[in-house]
Design a binder for these strands. Structure first.
Length: 455
RNA sequence: UCCUCGGUAGCUCAGCUGGUAGAGCAGGUGACUGUUAAUCACCCUGUCGGCGGUUCGAAUCCGUCCCGAGGAGCCA
């Protein structure tokens, strides 16, 4: 008998078809002479309703004892459902129980659980509607990132996870040490110098961009910051394209195009899951996403942003002044109150941005861009890179960076240097934006935050 | 890391100004039923986050630590 996934069955139901499904019981309801089983196999949000008649051999012994979480393989024929709520249902000819889930101890109930509670059972939370939907949307977005870049001729580069270069300004690095090093013995420096987990693949991506043209990295990134917010993780995934022969303008275009491409993709292909978020997590989500796809992003410079903030009617906790970095409240005001759509802010003061960003002709600002999004804040940060050797060196020295360890990076400016640009997209922030999930810990399968890494 | 709020049954919470604990849901049993967060009846459930202090007496007041949420900083 043909094993089918529920998504497949519901996409094109063939009444009368004999088939088999495999999944987990969500709930059982007994009627006279038979039971309703709701089975979910993870292929989609919807369950398949199964009719299990008392005539089945194991009805009294097993089927009547099924409860949430039990795993089953069910054979039967697809029937039109006489009742409301579902178009089709499976009339079972055989119900095989693979694994029981003691209802006394199984933590998932047939009700809404708080996300905080679900986080304490990360081994079971993907079995819930919302977290399962997040996982499917996340997967689709991930695949979409690859297709977007691959369709445009970008080459994926696997930049190192362990690195000896700190992408200055990107946050604290986790140190990588061997046991002997932690014991204070000599020889513990496995690489002969201090090493850490990457905080960004950008510097290494630049190497490949200046050989292959357009490249991107998409991998895990680590920050040892003691950040306790709904927008930060110690381990997260970042998408970082890097483009040779590209300036800030080109960088902005790719970023906007990419975000719209990804939103269009999930709006078309994850409709059922997004509808769940729209209904229970963030009302109006679908309309908001569609709006982002349809509208052009707003473009302003940092200096224009400062002017607008100075003219703002409302008062801010942090004073606004040219030269200071934009605070969350400022970013919020700009993207949520003034523009009410994604906003690209460019040309920040050089003093508040990292050494690798290209200095503009005014000598005061750099060709940086941040993309701010309502509800999340910064989702993308990028820049045109400084391709002029002397200027780069001067900025590194001004920043107090040991240039010895960065000679390889400087070399790119010595041999056939080209203008180039790139950006970093926080993948979890994208998933947050798309799903409307309030906390970033719910959009990654196993969140790592200060004091929390249970498995 | 800072500010604010919170931690009471498996889950979500109530418990006012101190007198040693309750509801809904879940779970169990039974009834009923083409049900769909099913319905009805009955039953079970607690180191009141940890430690220390004040008090005749602390879930309640004080101190401290741990954990969570919201906001901030850092950023993606």
């Amino acid at each position: 008998m043909l094993r089918k996934r529920i998504a497949q069955i519901l996409a094109a139901p063939q009444v009368g078809e004999e088939l088999q499904i495999a999944g987990w019981i969500r709930t059982r309801r007994d009627a006279s002479g038979f039971s309703f089983l709701e089975v979910n196999d993870g292929s989609c949000l919807a369950n398949l309703q199964v009719i299990a008649n008392q005539g089945l051999g194991n009805y009294g012994e097993e089927i009547k004892k099924l409860s949430a979480g039990c795993s089953v393989i069910i054979s039967g024929s697809l029937q039109e459902s006489p009742a409301k709520g579902q178009a089709v249902e499976l009339l079972a000819t055989g119900v095989q129980v693979l694994g029981w889930a003691d209802p006394e101890s199984y933590p998932l109930q047939k009700k809404n659980h708080s996300f905080e509670f679900l986080r304490t059972i990360s081994q079971l939370r993907p079995r819930t509607n919302a977290l399962g939907a997040v996982a499917r949307v996340r997967s689709r977005l991930s695949y979409g990132v690859h297709t977007f870049f691959q369709e445009r001729g970008f080459v994926q580069v696997h930049t190192p996870i362990i690195t000896t270069s700190d992408c200055e300004g990107a946050g604290e690095m986790f140190q990588v040490v061997t046991p002997s090093a932690s014991a204070g013995e000599a020889g513990g420096e496995f690489f002969g110098r201090p090493a850490g987990l990457t905080v960004s693949g950008q510097l290494q991506a630049e190497v490949y961009a200046q050989a292959l043209g357009n490249v991107y990295t998409f991998g895990p990134t680590f920050r040892a910051e003691n950040s306790n917010t709904s927008r930060h993780l110690a381990e997260f995934w970042m998408v970082e394209p890097e483009m040779a022969f590209c300036d800030l303008e080109g960088n902005k275009q790719v970023a906007e195009e990419m975000l719209k491409y990804l939103l269009r993709l999930v709006l078309a292909e994850c409709r059922e899951d997004l509808a769940l978020f729209d209904r229970f997590i963030a009302r109006g989500l679908l309309a908001r996403l569609q709006q982002v796809v349809d509208q052009d992003f707003a473009h302003i410079t940092y200096s224009e942003a400062i002017e607008q903030l100075l003219q703002a009617q409302q008062s801010f906790t942090y004073p606004v002044q040219w030269g200071v970095d934009l605070q969350s409240e400022h970013e919020r005001y700009l993207t949520e109150t003034i523009y009410q759509r994604p906003l690209i802010v460019t040309d920040y003061p050089a003093a508040i941005k990292p050494f690798y960003m290209r200095v503009n002709d005014d000598g005061q600002t750099v060709a940086a861009m941040d993309i701010l999004v309502p509800g999340i804040g910064e989702i993308i940060g990028g820049s045109q890179r400084e391709e002029r050797y002397d200027l780069l060196l001067a900025r590194m020295q001004a920043a107090g960076i040991e240039t010895d360890g960065y000679q390889w990076y400087l070399d790119l400016r010595r041999y056939g240097t080209v203008p180039h640009a790139g950006f970093g997209l926080g993948f979890e922030r994208l998933v947050q934006f798309v799903t409307g999930m309030a906390n970033i810990r719910e959009v990654i399968p196993f969140p790592r935050t200060p004091g929390f890494a249970p498995c």
